[in-house]
Amino acid sequence: MSADPGAARRRDLSLLLAVLLALLGVALTIIYFMALQAGAAPRLADLAYARLPGTGVQNPVTAVLLNYRAYDTLMELAVLLAALLGIWSLGPAAPGFQRSGAVLAGMVSWIVPLLIVTGGYLLWVGGYAPGGAFQAGALLGAAGVIVRLAGDPRAGLPAEAAQRWLLVLGVLVFTLVGLGLMVFGAGFLTYPPKLAKWLILAIEMAATVAIAVALAAAYVGGRPPGPEARPTAADEDAEPQPPASSPRPPVPGR
């Protein structure tokens, strides 16, 4: 669409930007080098390791995520929720893919249980080894993506009303634990060392479910398609999955 002078101008601009950004990169590298040369300033790492025994977990990263900086993680779950609300507000999801053939369906029936077991393992092992709620949630979300690719329009998730509850579960449990601790005299999300392990585990389980549902729902990419066009109050206790033989839902093409 661009005429010849326009294209030339664009090329010049791109070159100019490249030069400017290269200069920026050189400047940043020099600053980084000087910062490293300045030697080791006191770091949070030593404090983090020193306090580890009282956190209820042995994996320092999990300790930072769910104990020292639990606010960060709570806000992050809120960001994830907000992003999904944004996606849902854009309208209904595109209709799903056609139902998979026997080979893919067979593979899915192997892989999805495997992903669920691995997700549970990662969640538990996150207390003392690499793993945790994010990794577990990502694996479960990936299972949802695979199920959607194999033809389930809702990625194996329940109907919209139930999905909402699952989505807010992470923020809800996190906030309730924090408020409960406040009521009992500790600060917001300041765990007493005796209870820390179980509180963190409860939060992590809720966060895993919320992250998994949010990621899978983001892949669906819109308000979840249901058997009926509009969800009703009857969906409150709806079945977890649409029947396998049901035809693709009549979502109107946009």
Binding site: P60, L65, R69, T73, V79, L80, A83, Y219
Partner: peptide, 20 residues
């Protein structure tokens, strides 16, 4: 140092939700 690790872990999830 576990603190930057945790920051990056949080950042990855935020980045992917923004991407979506």
């Amino acid at each position: 140092d576990p603190v930057p690790h945790a920051l990056v872990l949080t950042g990855i999830v935020v980045a992917v939700s923004a991407t979506a």
